[in-house]
């Protein structure tokens, strides 16, 4: 997992609960906790930190991960505005994840385990995202999509009928534009 994810998680936790909470989380997870955005760290390390956050906040894991997704989008968009600037709307942005954003990530790092994401539009108001990853972070993906929708100022609803957590080999995230 790219270090920037760890950095953003730290930002979120310190924002909500201060340095104290972050230190508690690190101690609970049993990690040293110095992360730079340009390095890559083990997925397990992230999962133990997230587990510690869930324990510390006493909120269900799905909620924590979803909220992190929303927060993470905002942070990534401000660190790398070029990607949101070059996509004029939410669906175009989602379609650019695999072909543009992840391509740029691969240029910078040789060892990245990025999820495989492909999008298909079905009509004007529906986009279906095929998400595949051994890490099964589909809930994080959902959070990121909600964050993106907020950035582009549109209301959405995500249905998740096919899920790797239910034994499928991929997740189908059906993103529908609402009239909000």
């Amino acid at each position: 997992m790219k270090g920037v994810v760890f950095n953003i998680l730290e930002d979120m936790v310190t924002e909500k609960g201060g340095l104290q909470m972050w230190q508690k989380v690190l101690d609970k997870a049993g990690v040293d906790g110095g992360y730079t955005a340009v390095s890559t760290y083990s997925d397990d390390e992230l999962f133990s930190i997230v587990g510690a956050v869930v324990e510390e906040l006493g909120i269900p894991a799905e909620e924590v991960i979803g909220a992190f997704g929303v927060y993470m989008f905002g942070q990534l968009a401000s660190r790398y505005p070029v990607f949101t600037d070059s996509a004029s709307d939410l669906f175009t942005f989602l379609e650019s994840i695999d072909s543009v954003i992840h391509l740029e990530v691969k240029k910078l790092m040789t060892e990245t385990n990025l999820p495989s994401i492909s999008c298909t539009r079905e009509g004007e108001k529906l986009l279906v995202m095929d998400y595949r990853s051994p890490r099964k972070l589909c809930l994080l993906a959902e959070g990121l999509i909600y964050g993106a929708a907020e950035h582009y100022g549109c209301g959405i609803k995500i249905d998740h009928p096919i899920c790797m957590h239910k034994g499928a080999d991929h997740c189908d995230l059906q993103v529908s534009l609402t009239d909000e």
Binding site: T36, A37, V38, E104, K107, L108
Partner: peptide, 17 residues
């Protein structure tokens, strides 16, 4: 400072690529 250094690294890496 760290974030700034990271951005320098990323920019240089992209240029090298």
């Amino acid at each position: 400072a760290r974030i700034s250094a990271e951005q320098v690294v990323e920019k240089t890496t992209r240029e090298l690529y």
